[in-house]
Design a protein around this nucleic acid. Structure first.
Lengths: 199, 199
DNA sequence: TCCTTCATGTAACCGGTTACATGATTGT
DNA sequence: ACAATCATGTAACCGGTTACATGAAGGA
């Protein structure tokens, strides 16, 4: 039920209509929590009904500007301090990696390197985004900057990992797809066999 | 519709019952694609109905062992080679980060450092897992090893990023100019504020 | 005998996606 | 006049979660 809190967070920062909020989801926020128009409007109606937000102004085309009620603000803060968001972390790409053994080895390697390539492109896009915006306007954009940095590091990780994984497959067992386990050979070839801890 | 393909992938590797598959989801596979008992059984029934899998053996307690049909295998391979899995990437933790500005600064910093701590613990757990299993039995466990390595690197990233982000907040806006908050701090090696590219 | 594990199924619910539908206002 | 944008709403569907329900087989 995180969309609820995303809306509260945005409205706490600045009042706005469903349409305003949608635009934010389509740009910055959508990177970490996508939401569609229909869902946003529905959730706003519910939030209004439960008294966490209310209509504070009405505009031209039936536009309804929402603001947080005190209860809404309290709920937003409560969510931030109390909630330990854990990871369901459904990762389709890792799911596919899990089954890469079904493919001929070169095909699997190709797949991993494609992932590296995609990540590189995403990295560039994020970098461009970082250099166009100014990130010191307010607290929201300052925090957006933190999130963006996470995205950048994530893309670096994806590239490094994918290349490492491809190496592993090449250095690995000499079996055909769906075949028997072959002769084990000592790998642990490169230095990156173990992620370093920052603990 | 990824559960479908997860099941196909598992059954391609080795025939099994819903119960068998469930155990796999509760351990290794659950890290990247959780699934509940009810969903697994439902999906197996559907896959059977569409002819991608079939019952090849019946056991003691109504146990039904499923195997892939040729069409099922083809579909599994097609999914692996054709599908470009992109990221909806809903990340609750980054969503919260986005709104950290609602909290007093020290509270926000605390939140980030908690995240670092959690990630450190998860890192240790994964490391333990890595050292108990043997990862050279077959192609499936070999690929599982790749996925696990991704998890390790991910946890390292989370820690480094969270500490960097905490620093950013402390060094950031001077909205409350209550003295110098640790003026000259030598950042740890990798925290330049810019993720290095591996392109 | 009794408990645990094995083994499957189904129904209600919820968050999110797709698609359809409507109409007012503004700028060219 | 016309197109683009602003602005809201709703209904069908789908994947996933929670919870309930049943019973057979094996080991103590």
């Amino acid at each position: 039920m995180s969309l609820r809190h995303a809306l509260l967070g945005l409205l706490d920062f600045r009042p706005g209509s469903g349409y305003d909020l949608l635009k934010i989801f389509n740009t910055s926020l959508g990177y970490v929590w996508p939401a569609k128009q229909s869902q946003i409007y529905g959730e706003l109606t519910k939030l209004d009904a439960t008294g966490l937000i209310k209509v504070t102004e009405e505009g031209p085309r039936g536009r309804k500007q929402y603001s947080l009620t005190p209860e809404g603000h309290a709920e937003a803060v409560r969510w931030l301090v109390e909630t330990q968001e854990s990871r369901p972390q459904r990762n389709p790409m890792l799911l596919q990696t899990f089954f890469l053994g079904l493919l001929p080895r070169e095909e699997a390697v190709k797949r991993l390197l494609q992932h590296a390539d995609t990540s590189a492109k995403e990295y560039d896009a994020l970098l461009a985004l970082r250099d166009t915006e100014d990130w010191d306007r307010d607290m929201l954009s300052a925090c957006g900057r933190l999130v963006l940095e996470h995205g950048l590091r994530q893309r670096v990780l994806e590239q490094e990992w994918a290349r490492w994984a491809a190496d592993q497959l090449l250095a690995g067992p000499a079996t055909e797809p769906a075949g028997e386990a072959g002769a084990a050979d000592a790998h642990e070839s490169s230095t990156t066999g173990e992620a370093r801890t920052g603990k």
